[in-house]
């Protein structure tokens, strides 16, 4: 069972920026994720879709190193396995992604100042960081609310700020956890353009969890589908989920690989 994972190939050399090997995760003996192998090239935009409870958020938490897998490893450029979240992995959540007690500008500056020893920049560094923050706010269209607190911003503006803040820390991969799930359809469309533009500018490697299939195919280069390949009707919790489909979304979403051949037959 299981086909060898697709390896991004460039001139005959396997290029894997993010490498996931033999990943399992279970909570209290109950498997959530099983047998996940994945290679993602630098600059790829990977959408992760699936039904609720299929473990896609768990997978994102593992990518973020917010929790450790029961088995298996995740490495960025063959670096060490991360044991806790850090500056390598930027993240934008559906909610609570910006700090409510900091102004919009201070939220961006925080991406620089939080990495210092006590959390404050030196007097000299502060002005430069503020200027950089203002330039970013100008770029993401939030310059006019630089001194406002996030609570006064619309949902779309808050998410734009959260993405700008995450990118300011210059992470190596950016994780988006249902970033547009709480937005109205119009705002969501403009956020799609916003993310596409920023991605073109930065060449960031992005993982996005979404429950919106169309959104996943529109933004992603690849769409990973999480589902349970094995299903015991008497014990629905017996097996965990894995990547059942890996679609190439660059050419209109024609699947170039099906990871689990026996999936459809078992899952009635």
């Amino acid at each position: 069972m299981g086909v060898a994972p697709r390896l991004p190939v460039d001139g005959g050399v396997v290029v894997s920026f993010v490498r996931v090997r033999g990943l399992w995760q279970s909570y209290g003996g109950r498997p959530i994720l099983e047998r996940i192998d994945l290679d993602v090239a630098k600059g790829e935009f990977v959408s992760i879709v699936g039904a609720s409870g299929c473990g896609k958020s768990t997978f994102l938490r593992l990518l973020l190193a917010e929790e450790m897998p029961s088995r298996g490893t995740i490495r960025i450029e063959d670096g060490p396995v991360a044991r806790e979240p850090g500056r390598e992995r930027g993240v934008v959540f559906q909610r609570y992604s910006v700090f409510p007690h900091l102004t919009v500008r201070a939220n961006v500056v925080a991406a620089e100042s939080f990495a210092t020893r006590r959390g404050w920049l030196s007097r000299a560094g502060r002005q430069a960081a503020r200027d950089r923050a203002d330039a970013l706010l100008e770029r993401i269209g939030l310059a006019h609310v630089a001194d406002a607190y996030p609570a006064t911003l619309s949902g779309g503006m808050q998410q734009r700020l959260a993405i700008g803040q995450a990118l300011t820390a210059r992470p190596r991969i950016l994780l988006l956890d249902e970033p547009f799930g709480a937005l109205d359809p119009g705002t969501r469309l403009s956020m799609h353009d916003f993310v596409s533009e920023l991605r073109a500018e930065t060449g960031m490697t992005i993982f996005m969890v979404t429950h919106d299939l169309a959104e996943g195919f529109k933004l992603g280069d690849r769409v990973l589908v999480f589902d349970k390949p094995r299903w015991d009707p008497h014990e629905p919790e017996a097996f965990g989920a894995t990547i059942t489909y890996d679609f190439d979304a660059r050419h209109g979403g024609i699947p170039y690989q099906i990871k689990e051949d026996d999936h459809a037959a078992i899952h009635a």
Binding site: L64, E66, E84, P85, G86, R87, R89, G90, V91, F93, R95, Y96, S97, V98, F99, A110, A111, S113, F114, A115, T116, R117, R118, G119, W120, Q165, A166, A169, P171
Partner: peptide, 22 residues
């Protein structure tokens, strides 16, 4: 919210910085 604590860590905040600034 857990999200804020994780977010601070992804911005490089140490335990001390999380305590003082978040």
């Amino acid at each position: 919210p857990r999200e804020q604590m994780v977010k601070a860590q992804t911005l490089g905040a140490s335990s001390l910085v999380i305590a003082l600034r978040v």
